[in-house]
Amino acid sequence: MTISNQLLLRFLTLKLYNKTQKTQTKTGEQKMYKEKDVIIAGKKQKKKIPIEEPTSLFINGKHFKTFMITPEMKKEFTIGHLICEGLVSKPKEIESIDIEGNEINAILKGYKQQPSQGLIVSGCGGGTNYLDEENLPKIKNTKKFNLKQINQFMIEVLETGKSSGLHSSGIKSQTQNFQKIIKDIGRHNTIDKIVGAAIKQKINLKNCYIVSTGRMSSDMALKCAKAGIPIAGSHRSLTTLAIEIGEKTNLTILGKLSKPKKTEIYTNPNQIK
């Protein structure tokens, strides 16, 4: 991306962002929803609509990506995205994260500059069209995870996100007293945010599992694998490439988790009890 194109993208992002600033509370915290007028059965009503706003990530001073996200937990999102995309291998490689409005500036140690990836819309995570098998991570896990507990957590995540208009994902530790459920306009964004939230709490990701209300696609499976999380699942369907990633990275992938008697184990069943 040329400098002029970067400047244009930044200008458009700022213009879009400024339109969302009325959603801020008096304390400066942003809401996840904005009330809009809607006609239902001929009657005008107010309805809470999920907010989608552009947020740009700059790494070591240069534009990396602009995302469409739900405007909260931006620091957790950044930490998780850097880990889940393999841009850093350990949290200590992140020297600092500064957030100002819709711009996130991250300073990383030993980072090799990459081309700007432009705008990533909320409906996709950037895409995984092929597998670079040489660079795929290998999850090292000898523990077994209780399937009934995973089913129960999936049902809890579904209940939390019911009628929200947002995707929900949850992360839970099998050995530490930690669980987190997060909602966002993009299902892949929820993975970044829950991983970031766990890292902030110094949770060992190797003892965690992730569940999501969204379809487990290849980009989501790869995020989990790069974060070192051994179990990932959804109450919905999966894709063939997600299953292939599970097979090659030792990630156990589960489907139909909200139906305990019909739960599907696609890969690495040895990690489930």
Rank of each mutant, 00 (worst) to 15 (best):
E72V: 15
F77G: 00
F64S: 08
T66C: 13
T55C: 15
E52C: 14
N60Q: 08
I51R: 12
I69L: 12
P54K: 04
E53N: 09
I51S: 07
T66V: 11
F64M: 07
E53V: 15
E76C: 03
T66W: 10
G80P: 02
I59W: 05
L57S: 02
T55R: 11
K48R: 09
F64N: 03
K47F: 10
S56Q: 09
H63M: 05
K65F: 05
E76P: 03
S56F: 04
I69N: 01
T55P: 12
E76S: 10
I49D: 11
E76N: 05
K47A: 10
F64V: 03
P54W: 00
M68W: 12
F77H: 01
I49S: 11
K48Y: 06
I59G: 04
S56G: 08
M68F: 14
F64Y: 15
E53W: 08
K62N: 08
K74M: 02
E52R: 14
F58W: 11
K62R: 12
K48E: 11
I79C: 03
K74S: 00
F77C: 01
L57I: 13
K62P: 08
N60H: 08
S56A: 12
T55M: 15
F64G: 00
H63D: 05
M68A: 13
E52Q: 14
I49L: 12
K75V: 03
K75C: 06
L57F: 10
N60L: 09
L57Q: 02
K48V: 08
I51H: 10
I69T: 04
T78M: 01
N60C: 08
E76D: 11
E53K: 05
E53I: 11
M68E: 14
E52M: 06
G61D: 13
F77S: 01
E52I: 13
H63K: 07
E53P: 03
L57E: 02
F64C: 03
I51V: 15
E53F: 08
K47H: 11
T66I: 12
K74D: 00
T66A: 12
T70M: 13
T78Y: 01
P71H: 03
T78E: 02
H63T: 04
F77K: 00
P50T: 04
E52Y: 10
I69E: 02
K47E: 13
E76H: 04
I59P: 02
F67G: 00
T66P: 10
G61A: 14
M68V: 14
N60P: 05
F77Y: 04
K48H: 08
E52A: 13
E76T: 04
K47Q: 14
K48S: 10
S56Y: 06
M73D: 03
M73R: 05
I79W: 00
I51C: 06
K47P: 05
T66Q: 10
F58I: 10
K65N: 07
K47N: 09
F64K: 03
E53Y: 07
P71L: 04
E52H: 10
T66H: 12
N60T: 09
I51E: 03
I59N: 07
L57W: 06
P54V: 05
P50R: 02
M73T: 02
I69W: 00
I59Q: 15
P71I: 05
L57M: 09
P50A: 07
K62V: 11
I51G: 13
E72C: 15
T55I: 15
F77L: 09
F64L: 12
K75W: 07
T70I: 14
I79S: 01
I51A: 12
T70Y: 01
N60A: 08
T70K: 02
P50K: 01
K48Q: 09
